[in-house]
């Protein structure tokens, strides 16, 4: 199996930071807030690999740093330290040593992101089709007819009614907004997709259909994904491997089945037990 992503020692501290930040935070300290300088150690020393076509879960309670992991990898935020290598066919990119333009190019062409809040992933003032067109135009597709065909095909694939291609997504239901976001993320057929709590807050039946869609896409396109969620049901359904986070640190990592059947860390045991 080909490696897509290699993350090593990824850290993000909000605030000035001080020499005691790291020893004063984390699962043992039971906080991510440094009592000495007031900085938030959102994540520290996060490492993992992701392989072609694989779905990796990132789980943990609210504030444990899950979103921060994907935000740094998608260049929404710069990490404080750490390294990430993206392997793209024959090329490899050292993500955090690229300049802003190179990062933007990767973001637009080779990565996709689906946010919990569709407001972050979609421009609500342009049509659903226009949102997808924007991503295609970023990758220099300049043929109106081709753009339109592709936008329609993507919306059809994500089961958005074609009669709504020219409607503003702000008038869509939450589930449909997520489908448009997924269609947009897939527009350039990226080998790597980040999904941050994409079903949180949706009705259960709507959730189930979107999760099915994600699985189908993974099987059809062999897209590698990092799925962030605090929902163990989502982890169980989608992911093959997972990492468990607490106060910014990875406390457990392994095959999802193993983690859920036989959690090693006391915190994970409680987490799994409470979800049963």
């Amino acid at each position: 199996m080909n490696k897509i992503l290699e993350v090593r020692g990824l850290s993000k501290i909000y605030g000035p930071g001080c020499p005691q930040c790291l020893e004063s935070t984390g699962p043992e300290a039971d906080t991510n807030l440094c009592p000495h300088c007031g900085s938030v150690v959102a994540i520290h020393d996060v490492s993992f690999d992701l392989f072609e076509g694989e779905i990796l879960g990132v789980m943990g309670e609210s504030g444990s740093g899950k979103s921060t992991v994907v935000k740094t990898l998608y260049f929404d935020q710069a990490p404080s330290s750490g390294e990430a290598i993206f392997f793209d066919n024959d090329r490899q990119y050292d993500l955090f040593s690229l300049n802003a333009a190179q990062q933007r190019w990767l973001r637009n062409h080779r990565f996709g992101m689906v946010y919990q809040n569709p407001n972050l992933g979609l421009n609500f003032n342009i049509s659903a089709g226009g949102n997808i067109a924007e991503r295609l135009l970023m990758s220099d597709l300049m043929d109106y007819g081709a753009i339109r065909e592709r936008a329609k095909a993507l919306l059809a694939r994500t089961e958005v009614l074609l009669s709504r291609v020219d409607d503003l997504p702000k008038h869509f239901s939450g589930g449909m907004q997520q489908r448009v976001q997924i269609a947009k993320a897939l527009a350039t057929q990226p080998p790597l997709l980040f999904l941050d709590e994409v079903t949180t807050g949706l009705d259960l039946s709507v959730q189930a259909r979107i999760l099915d869609l994600i699985l189908e896409i993974q099987q059809e396109l062999k897209t590698a994904m990092v799925v962030v969620t605090h929902d163990l049901g989502v982890i169980r359904l989608l992911t093959g491997r997972a990492i468990v986070m607490k106060y910014g640190r990875v406390i457990e990592t392994g095959l999802t089945d193993q983690i859920l059947e036989d959690p090693q860390h006391a915190y994970t045991q409680r987490l799994v037990a409470s979800a049963l």
């Binding site: 049509s127 089709g129 226009g130 067109a133 924007e134 991503r135 135009l137 970023m138 300049m142 753009i147």
Partner: peptide
């Protein structure tokens, strides 16, 4: 300024796209 520097005019082109749609 960043958009100009990177010749990133996709959002302007989307305006044209929407124009043709409408």
């Amino acid at each position: 300024k960043t958009m100009h520097g990177e010749a990133d005019y996709s959002r302007l082109l989307v305006k044209l796209y929407e124009d043709i749609v409408k």
